[in-house]
């Protein structure tokens, strides 16, 4: 097996991204639920996953995604919130990776699909955990808020990716 080496720059970049994801998660927790719609979030942490996906690829994005879900749940959350984050994070991560792999969509579209699928994942987890289908209405609301927040994150992500590329932060 080929020995894997990791550069200091890569290590620092990963650490920075995980720290950023955790801070953004914490910030989101401080913001009271928007417009009395519980569960509606801007999905700021998705920004980090998006940047990782476009700078270092699918594996790195999923790695950062899982690490931040685990760390954030351990620090601020509960067992239940871990399951919800995991369901949302895994589904949105997968959808974004697959969409990006097709090479046919822009970062904004990828982000929107990610935002919606994140909410679908969370609703699915709630359906399974609570053994109810009565949250269908909730899915509709989160479907559209996920689209809107995905668009915002996608536009931000596009700008940030360009800036970071110029700052040569993406080089290994």
């Amino acid at each position: 097996m080929k020995k894997q080496t990791i550069t200091t720059k890569t290590l620092a970049f990963y650490a920075l991204m995980i720290a950023l994801a955790m801070i953004l998660s914490y910030l989101e927790m401080l913001v009271p639920p928007f417009f009395a719609i519980p569960g509606m979030k801007l999905g700021l942490t998705n920004l980090v996953v998006l940047i990782m996906l476009y700078s270092r690829g699918a594996k790195s994005a999923m790695f950062i995604n899982l690490v931040r879900i685990l760390l954030v749940s351990l620090l601020f959350g509960s067992g239940v919130s871990f399951i919800y984050s995991l369901a949302g994070g895994l589904l949105s991560g997968l959808v974004m990776i697959l969409l990006k792999r097709t090479g046919k969509f822009s970062i904004v579209a990828v982000s929107i699909a990610g935002g919606v699928s994140h909410n679908i994942g969370q609703i699915l987890a709630a359906v399974l955990l609570l053994n109810t289908t009565s949250i269908a209405w909730y899915l509709v609301i989160l479907w559209f808020t996920g689209t809107a927040s995905g668009a915002v994150i996608g536009i931000l992500g596009g700008i940030l990716c360009k800036k970071l590329q110029n700052a040569r932060l993406f080089e290994k």
């Binding site: 919606v116 899915l139 689209t147």
Partner: peptide
């Protein structure tokens, strides 16, 4: 650009149908 619009429209349409 066009594919983006189609994808986003499809997402919104499915939400609307639900």
């Amino acid at each position: 650009h066009l594919r983006d619009i189609i994808l986003i429209a499809a997402i919104l349409l499915i939400g609307g149908i639900i």
